[in-house]
Amino acid sequence: MLHFALRRLFSAVPTLFLIVTLAFFLVRWAPGGPFDRERPIPPEIAANLNASFHLDEPLWRQYLHYLANLLHGDFGPSFKYQDYSVTELIWQGFPVSLQLGASAMLIAVLLGLAMGVFAALRRNHWMDYFVMSTAMLGIVIPNFVMAPVLGLIFGVYLHWLPVGGWGDELRYRILPVIALSLPQVAYIARLTRASLIEVLHSAYIRTARAKGLPLRKILLQHAARPTLLPVISYLGPATAAIVTGSVVIEQIFGIPGIGRYFVQGALNRDYTLVMGVVVFYAVLIILLNLLVDLLYAWLDPRIRHAQRDAALTHVL
C-alpha cells in the first residue's frame, strides 16, 4: 500500500510541473502582461515585480526563480492590492472557501448516497421516479441559478435566512452550502443508484442470497463496497466541480473566499492573483485526486494487488 501511494505521488509530479510551466508562460506571453513595460504600473509594484521575478535576467533564470518561489509558497505580489502579496490574499480567503467547500462536499456525499440507495431499492417504483426526477432537476438547474432563486424564496419572500454575507452563525451558511452542493447531490444520487442496481444483479450477490443471508447483511457486507467504488472515483471530478462552483457561489452571496478574489482579479486583470489562484487550486485538486486514488485502492483489493504485482515485476 505504501509503495502504491508513493508511485501515485510520483505520477502526480509531471501534472504539477505542466500546470506551473503553463502558468508561467501564459503570464509571459499574455498581451499587456505583467512584464509589459508599456502598461502603466505603479512604481512600488514594478519594484516588487522586479524583485520577485528578476526581470533583468534571461528567461530561463526567470523561470527558475519562479519555480523556486512557488516551492516556498510565494506567488508574487498582487497587481491590484498593493499592500498584499498573492499568497497573503489566498491564505486570507482559503479558510472561508474550505469551510464552504467541505460542508458542501459532505452534504453531497451523504445525501447523494442516501437518495441513490433509496431509489435503487425501490427501482421502477414511483418513489424511485420521484427521487430521480428531482435529481435531474439538480443537474439541469445550474448553481448560479439555484443560488439566487433560493435567496429569493428563503431570503426575500420568507425572510427566513440572510440573502448574503458570511458569519459564524449557521444561518449564513445554509443557503450557500445547499446551492453549492445540489448539483453534486444529484450526480452522486444518480451514480449510486446505477451502481447499486448493477451490483445487485451481479453473480456474487446471487451467491450471497443463496447462502441465506438477510437483505441487511447482503447490502452492508457484500454490496456496499463495490457500490461505493464508482462514487469514490467521482469524488475527484466532484471536488473540481465544487471548487469551480464556489467561485460563483461566493460571488452571489458575497462570501470573502478565494473565489471572490479570483473573480475580482479576473475582472481587474490582476494577472499574478489570477495565476496564483489557478496554480493553488490545481495543486489542491491534484492532491485530492491522489487521496481519492488511494481510497479507491484501499477499497478494491484487485487494484491494490495489481499495483503491488506490477511494482514487484518492475523491481525484478
Binding site: A203, Y204, R206, T207, R209, A210, K211, L299, P301
Partner: peptide, 21 residues
C-alpha cells in the same frame, strides 16, 4: 433454509465469489 439445508454451487466461481471480500 437457504445456505443451510439447501445449498448451491455455481457455474463460474470467479464471478460467484465476492471479489472484495
Amino acid at each position: 433454509l437457504r445456505g443451510n439445508q439447501l445449498a448451491m454451487i455455481f457455474q463460474d466461481p470467479m464471478s460467484a465469489l465476492n471479489p472484495y471480500l
